Simulated assay, not measured.
Amino acid sequence: MIEPSWLTETRAAYDTVAVDYARLIPDVLEGPLDRGMLAAFAELVGPGRPVLEAGCGTGRITAHLRGLGLDISGVDLSPGMLDVARRDHPELRFEVGSMTALDLPDEALAGLVAWYSIIHLPPDLLPQVFTEFHRVLAPGGHLLIAVKAGDQRIRLEQAYGHTVSYDVYWLPPDRLAEQLTAAGLAVHATLVREAEELDRGPQAFLLARKADR
């Protein structure tokens, strides 16, 4: 089976920039509203229950959530990013994989985070991915998504000091909420904030929950 070009390009780009990405963005730089959504997610899930960050990159958000008490691991397309994640966070578990087909049994997770990771997926794949998120979440499980709020595709040719070639999609929060609801994940909080510091536009955060049985 031929791998789709968006996946090959995204993996290659992040393999290329991994070391400099970690150097330039070494810690959680998010502002108080962003951190507040992460803290709310951690409190809703609670300690000692399995959580996954899908598209974890260098593991900086995974480690932040571990610091908030979650039993969390990470999965990412890019072996290069995961090499850095394992170097910087050896106490955490990281695996190569794709959020389009998570290597997990049904209802395995109490929580799932996709922090600026679905922005590299072609938008027509999002319903499939949200169905996959629903599959791996246990009843009552929580999902947190962070995206760039808008409705456009940007082709990046330079990133973190390197020549690359991959897409970033700015996504409308209302449409995401509709797609999550259609996948069986009820959105119970949406935050849209204006650009701060390095942002190039508004950012959106959605908290959703899989229904109890």
Rank of each mutant, 00 (worst) to 15 (best):
G74V: 00
G57S: 12
L68W: 13
G59W: 03
I61Y: 03
V75L: 14
D167N: 14
I72A: 07
R86M: 08
S98R: 05
G74W: 03
I119H: 07
H120S: 06
A101Q: 12
G55F: 01
G55P: 00
E91M: 10
G57K: 09
F94D: 09
V96T: 15
G48C: 11
V147A: 13
A114N: 08
S117N: 01
R153Q: 14
H142Q: 10
V136F: 03
D88F: 00
L68P: 06
L156C: 03
E107R: 12
A138F: 14
S73G: 12
I118S: 00
L144Y: 10
L109G: 14
F133T: 00
A108R: 03
E107N: 11
D71N: 13
S98C: 15
R66S: 05
V129P: 01
F94G: 11
H134T: 09
L82K: 13
I145L: 15
R49C: 02
H64W: 15
Q152V: 13
D83F: 02
T163A: 14
A149V: 03
G59S: 08
S165V: 02
Y116L: 02
P90Q: 10
H64E: 11
G161F: 11
L70R: 02
G59F: 00
G97F: 13
V164A: 07
E53C: 06
L143D: 00
A110N: 06
A138W: 03
Q152P: 00
D76C: 10
V51N: 04
L68C: 09
W115Y: 12
R153E: 14
P122M: 00
V113D: 14
L137N: 04
T163Q: 07
A149H: 07
I154K: 10
I154T: 15
I72M: 01
D124L: 09
G111K: 09
V51A: 06
E107F: 12
A108F: 04
P139T: 02
L52R: 05
D167A: 15
L52H: 04
P122N: 01
G141S: 06
D106W: 07
G141R: 10
L104V: 12
F133L: 06
A138M: 01
V51C: 04
